[in-house]
């Protein structure tokens, strides 16, 4: 799981152009959205949706499920490990 978390962090940094950050700067359990944690916004949600689809074959079409998945990197990793198709 630790490897997957690091992999997702690297993908987020690459997809969102967070050039000033390293995976170590992202707390596994910090919220991805809002003022705390990474502070991502709706444009970034689009990036994460595409990231999940392209890298893991996971299509997130249910808003409630999607919001739950993007709580934190740890939650994303847990969801990917259980639902990945790639």
């Amino acid at each position: 799981m630790k490897e997957l978390i690091e992999e997702i962090k690297a993908q987020i940094i690459s997809a969102l152009n967070l050039e000033e950050m390293t995976p170590a700067d992202i707390d596994d359990n910090a919220p991805l959205f809002g003022d705390e944690g990474l502070g991502l916004d709706s444009i970034d949600v689009l990036e994460l949706i595409v990231l999940m689809e392209k890298n893991y074959g996971i299509k997130l079409s249910n808003p409630a499920e999607g919001k739950a998945v993007f709580q934190s990197v740890a939650v994303m990793a847990d969801y990917v490990s259980k639902n990945r198709k790639k």
């Binding site: 709706s42 949706i49 079409s61 999607g66 919001k67």
Partner: peptide, 14 residues
Amino acid sequence: DDMSHLFTLNAILS
């Protein structure tokens, strides 16, 4: 505000 529209739009496109 909860960004649910993004998931819907993405699903329509896909």
